[in-house]
Amino acid sequence: MESADVIVGKLLAKIINDLSLQSGERVALLVDHLGGTPSSELSIVARASWSMH
């Protein structure tokens, strides 16, 4: 099983490529609770995303 950091990195890379984002562009990231993901897991994903900015 891959770590949250690895999974988030893959997801963010896909989003960045799909949107053709360039370094320095500002975006908003929504980590949503749809589907019943526990708050603790959402916090892990949000932290991993923030650490990659």
Rank of each mutant, 00 (worst) to 15 (best):
M1R: 13
M1I: 14
M1P: 12
E2V: 14
E2S: 13
S3K: 10
S3V: 03
S3Q: 09
S3N: 07
S3A: 09
A4R: 10
A4T: 15
A4W: 14
A4V: 12
A4S: 12
D5L: 11
V6D: 08
V6Q: 10
V6E: 14
V6A: 15
V6G: 03
I7F: 13
I7T: 13
I7D: 08
V8N: 01
V8D: 07
V8S: 02
V8P: 01
G9P: 02
G9S: 02
G9D: 04
K10F: 10
K10N: 13
K10R: 14
L11E: 12
A13I: 01
A13D: 15
A13F: 09
K14R: 15
I15K: 12
I16W: 00
I16Q: 02
N17R: 13
N17S: 14
N17W: 09
D18L: 05
D18P: 02
L19E: 08
L19I: 03
L19C: 05
S20V: 03
S20A: 12
S20G: 08
L21W: 05
L21G: 10
Q22L: 13
S23Y: 08
G24M: 02
G24Q: 09
G24T: 08
G24D: 06
E25P: 05
E25T: 03
E25Q: 12
V27H: 01
V27P: 04
V27G: 02
A28F: 05
A28Y: 03
L29Q: 00
L29W: 00
L30C: 10
L30N: 09
V31E: 04
V31M: 02
V31L: 01
V31I: 08
D32E: 06
D32Y: 11
D32T: 12
D32H: 12
H33S: 10
H33T: 07
H33K: 07
H33L: 07
H33G: 08
H33I: 03
L34M: 11
L34C: 08
L34H: 13
L34A: 14
G35R: 06
G35L: 05
G35F: 05
G36I: 00
T37W: 04
T37M: 10
T37Q: 07
P38N: 00
P38Y: 00
P38V: 02
S39V: 11
S39C: 04
S39D: 11
S39I: 04
S40I: 02
S40M: 03
E41N: 04
E41L: 13
L42C: 07
S43Y: 04
S43W: 06
S43K: 07
S43V: 03
S43P: 00
I44S: 05
I44D: 06
V45G: 05
V45M: 06
V45I: 15
A46T: 07
A48R: 04
A48P: 03
S49K: 00
S49C: 08
S49G: 02
S49M: 03
S49Q: 04
S49N: 02
W50H: 11
W50Q: 12
W50C: 09
W50I: 15
S51Y: 10
M52V: 07
M52A: 15
M52W: 07
H53D: 14
H53T: 13
